[in-house]
Each structure stands twice: as structure tokens, then as C-alpha cells.
């Protein structure tokens, strides 16, 4: 629709929008995160939802304890190998459309604990991550920024076409295989469908 016409109409009290715009406006402003804290970063996540930073301004103050009612998983903290199957299971139980924010260095890559034998080196080995937040811990502002980034992503999705939202597509997996506890490590150590080792710049 022509922008000028739309502005003209709104002066007369007639608001026009697309169905897609309305749909995304609703989805973007009522993202309910899963109440799910793993480590230190979770404290900053709680701080974000408290009075000073007030995540409620973005429509995301409703932390849901049950994955069945949540849209967004904020992986806040270190994912250990013992916890990784649980995290994947929780993700599998969330209904579509679902999004993942990896909060903090640990959730991205293992962070300071990367050398640990029981630390998963990044949750994207098992799950598709939409937004990564670096930091140890990221400040609440960083989480808010990640949240706005996610909102922009949701806004850019359309109802039809190749850029459809996750729940309208049949080609995206909504469940991922849960890794098994092995004798020395998780089995498999990563999900090759979602993750491949990054190309090393100096690889030779």
C-alpha cells in the first residue's frame, strides 16, 4: 500500500495494515520465554526482568516454567554435558514457532570453561540458535538488545514465500535427537545437521 495514502487515511482515523504485519506485530510483542536458568547468566536474566531493566516493556515478562507454554528459550549459562540432553528435550517440547537465544560466552562456545571435560562447547552443537549474545555475563542491556534483534527477525518473517515463519514451514525440524550419555562423552558429540566445525582461517 502506498505510504502517502496510508498516512492520509490514518489522519482520518482509518488504520490500514497488512495481515502479515498484524500477525507479526502480535507475535513479536508477546514472546514468552522459558523460565530456565543454567548458571551465572541466569541471574542477569532475572535482573533483566526486574524493576530496573524491565523486560516487560517488550512483552516478554511472562516467564513460563513449562516448555509447553513458551516461545523462546534463553539458554542462559553453561550447558554441561550432563545437562545437554535435558536442554534438547526441553526444546523438543516447546511448540512451534520457537526461538533460541544463546546468552553468554558459555552458551555460545563454552566460554571460560571451554577446557572443561563436562562442558558442552556451545549449545548450537545440538540446537539452532537465532541470536547469540557475547559477554560473561552479558549485561541486561545486551539481553534487551538481543531481544530486540529477535523481534526484528520475527518482524521480517512473512506468511507465505520462502521466508515463512518456522511454524508454517514443513522443511524445518522441530525436534532434534537427544544425545545419549556415553562412557566417555556424549553420543553423538554434536548434531551434524545443525552444526559443522567452522572453517579455520589458518587451516592448512
Amino acid at each position: 500500500m502506498d505510504e502517502g495514502l496510508r498516512g492520509e487515511l490514518s489522519k482520518h482515523g482509518v488504520f490500514t495494515t497488512t495481515l502479515e504485519g498484524l500477525h507479526n506485530w502480535g507475535r513479536r510483542n508477546s514472546v514468552w520465554p522459558l523460565q530456565f536458568g543454567l548458571a551465572c547468566c541466569a541471574i542477569e536474566m532475572i535482573a533483566t526482568s526486574m524493576a530496573r531493566y524491565d523486560l516487560a516493556r517488550f512483552g516478554a515478562e511472562v516467564f513460563r516454567p513449562s516448555p509447553r507454554q513458551a516461545d523462546l528459550m534463553i539458554v542462559a549459562g553453561t550447558v554441561t554435558k550432563k545437562m545437554a540432553p535435558q536442554v534438547v528435550r526441553l526444546y523438543n517440547q516447546m511448540p512451534e514457532p520457537k526461538y533460541v537465544i544463546a546468552m553468554g560466552a558459555c552458551a555460545i562456545s563454552g566460554g571460560p570453561f571451554k577446557q572443561g571435560y563436562n562442558v558442552l562447547k556451545g549449545i548450537d552443537r545440538y540446537l539452532p540458535v537465532d541470536v547469540h549474545i557475547p559477554g560473561c555475563p552479558p549485561r541486561p542491556e545486551a539481553l534487551i538488545h538481543a531481544f530486540m534483534t529477535l523481534q526484528r527477525r520475527i518482524d521480517a518473517q512473512s506468511l507465505t514465500g520462502p521466508n515463512r515463519a518456522r511454524h508454517l514451514r514443513s522443511d524445518v525440524d522441530s525436534e532434534f535427537p537427544v544425545p545419549q550419555f556415553g562412557a566417555h562423552d556424549l553420543h553423538p558429540p554434536s548434531n551434524p545437521k545443525t552444526w559443522t566445525p567452522p572453517q579455520s582461517v589458518r587451516s592448512q
Partner: peptide, 9 residues
């Protein structure tokens, strides 16, 4: 387990 050396440089 050998699972973490993926630095870019």
C-alpha cells in the same frame, strides 16, 4: 574428549 579447538586463528 578432543572436542574444542575451533578458534579461528
Amino acid at each position: 574428549p578432543d572436542d574444542y579447538e575451533y578458534e579461528p586463528t
